[in-house]
Design a protein around this nucleic acid. Sequence first.
DNA 1: AATGAATGAGCGTTCATTCAT
DNA 2: TATGAATGAACGCTCATTCAT
Lengths: 209, 209, 209, 209
Amino acid sequence: MATAFEKAGSLAPIQRGAGGAALREAAREVFAERGYHGASIRDIAKRAGLSLSALYYWYASKQELFAALLEDSVQDYFETCDAALREAADTPQDRLRVLVQATVDYRVRRRLESIIATREILNLEPAQANRLVELRRAATDLFRDVIADGIRQGVFDCEHPDDSRRSLEAACNAIADWYDPAGEITADQLADRYADIALRLVGYTRNVQ
Amino acid sequence: MATAFEKAGSLAPIQRGAGGAALREAAREVFAERGYHGASIRDIAKRAGLSLSALYYWYASKQELFAALLEDSVQDYFETCDAALREAADTPQDRLRVLVQATVDYRVRRRLESIIATREILNLEPAQANRLVELRRAATDLFRDVIADGIRQGVFDCEHPDDSRRSLEAACNAIADWYDPAGEITADQLADRYADIALRLVGYTRNVQ
Amino acid sequence: MATAFEKAGSLAPIQRGAGGAALREAAREVFAERGYHGASIRDIAKRAGLSLSALYYWYASKQELFAALLEDSVQDYFETCDAALREAADTPQDRLRVLVQATVDYRVRRRLESIIATREILNLEPAQANRLVELRRAATDLFRDVIADGIRQGVFDCEHPDDSRRSLEAACNAIADWYDPAGEITADQLADRYADIALRLVGYTRNVQ
Amino acid sequence: MATAFEKAGSLAPIQRGAGGAALREAAREVFAERGYHGASIRDIAKRAGLSLSALYYWYASKQELFAALLEDSVQDYFETCDAALREAADTPQDRLRVLVQATVDYRVRRRLESIIATREILNLEPAQANRLVELRRAATDLFRDVIADGIRQGVFDCEHPDDSRRSLEAACNAIADWYDPAGEITADQLADRYADIALRLVGYTRNVQ
DNA sequence: AATGAATGAGCGTTCATTCAT
DNA sequence: TATGAATGAACGCTCATTCAT
């Protein structure tokens, strides 16, 4: 059973050598709360229970810490989508369904990083930003391809597929903004609902009506 | 009958004048490009072609300039929605349609403020933030009410109306992020497409199929 | 008559608008005492009787303040030499004599800058450093040319003119390190003595023996 | 008879060892390149191929490493001068000649330390600085005494012996700034030339003309 | 004899803001 | 209506140094 002290979590004294992980965790929270420019490295270090200079032992700069966070998270998203697709049945409707489920899962599981990545990617320095924009575009392409397949096969009815896709991605992104992990809706339930929403958006008619 | 706009109340009219307008215009751009904390009032004053001190003649602080921008923009949104609703036919499907069209129109017309309001509202000081969150909730209520009406009247088929509404609002918000005013899609075309998307999201079947 | 308060000089409150001059004066002293890296801009601002941020109103950076100091001083030296040569009689011995006198005058008159320029020029950023090295080389060329003339005309007897020149310049440079402006030797006396030293170094025999 | 070196006393011998030697070598270079304050012990440790902490095994502080370097070098200078004087003929002109040759030899052989000692002695803490200033004064006395002897014996003709001495020392010091060990002039050649310069400076006429 | 991890003080710089005119 | 000059607080970061192993 967690003691009050353990619940305080990030305020507990950090074990020697565990500074890097504590900093990443603190950075996640502070960047999500205050944004890149609003977050000071003093805040982050303090929340991690470390001195300011310890941050520079683990990361070369605020920017590098920030980039490590996003890189890790976006990579995770892409791999989550990829894995989901590999196990999906080979119909567009099922592939779209698992893609959305993977996305919702990711938005809930890595809620803070999602918020950061959506809101703050412009604050990455060009080199890193390009890498992540590339990865993000690859994820977008997964959606685009599945939708295009569905239309080609006649199972999706959708005059402006890009609008549907953009709406769908925006809807999924927004989950991170309002979802309450302590609330009553489980991630799985939410994933199912958003999969239904997705099929509506692309005009898949058979199992919705 | 009091409109949603009137219910939300109003502030003293924003001070107008050559310098003030130049500052608001510059602030719009700089806040949108770099975010609240990333934007410095030196940048804003310079872009407005004014001295740093002049900014303090027009606005008491960075925060007030920021708030004025958002306030102005959110009021505009309400007026737009209100006007649209007043002229709409009295069916849920038509009311939802004009609501979405008004929203899209606003997102395109006030693109930069939209981006700012979506991304940076956390940087408002509590008093102002509460006002705007209130206004925003009022906007959300317009959608909620219309959707609830449609369901009650049996013209919308929608198991989780809150999810549909949130998806719809997120989709509309996102337009500001990708829409290119110099591109080929006109705001009216886009508004129509998103009205269709809205009706799909709420399960309005008659004039879509 | 100077009051005790006026003597304290740099500690007196600075008149509004006079910050730039006070900063240059303070920088002169602190850079000379502690070197470029040893001098902190907080020290400089404090000695100038200004806040740290005021320094940044007048100069864009520590480096720029430093460069302004050296630029001004080296320029002064070059002009001093040039002016002296224009009024000198046209014999090598007289030209060398006024050149040395001008140099001694400069080393005494701008003692602190001399120390800084000699010791710290490597701490200038390349662009500025190149400019100053160029100016310095021009001054060195004045010496080189005069000595070469004297040898060609047979009035100087000097097997290794570059060694003589380097020794002479080093001797003059060093004056800034030990000269006490409050001591008994006047700058003019010193200039005469060093002119004699110069003529010995180049082997000018007629009026020395 | 106690030599100047013995009079100045000596410190405990510097600790020797692989790591320590590598550190001193690295420190020599880095201090010479960037000055005391501009050199970081991280740079020094890295150039020595050791960890930062290892530096603290060998030296108690940056200051101690710095002092060890200068101490070592100045002691070397004294031994060089002493040895040279012991083998010199007992005339002022020969004693001055070997003193200058020893000095030039030292400036060339210990070029980097020479630069450091000349430029950075102010950065020594008082205790150490006093010791070295004392040693330096002892060196100056060697010159002063020889010159005074020469004047007393009538072989030097020199109205302001202190100016001659200061010029001579400055000229020798400066060698470290421009001498190129890979160039064409050997240290011995240079030593001869500077010995001639010295005799000119003090007005020794017989074997120069 | 050496290391990886951490610290507190201070660095140069920028920030939003205010003062005097 | 504006400006030029100044401020105190905070920023991201580096410093010499120490601790635990």
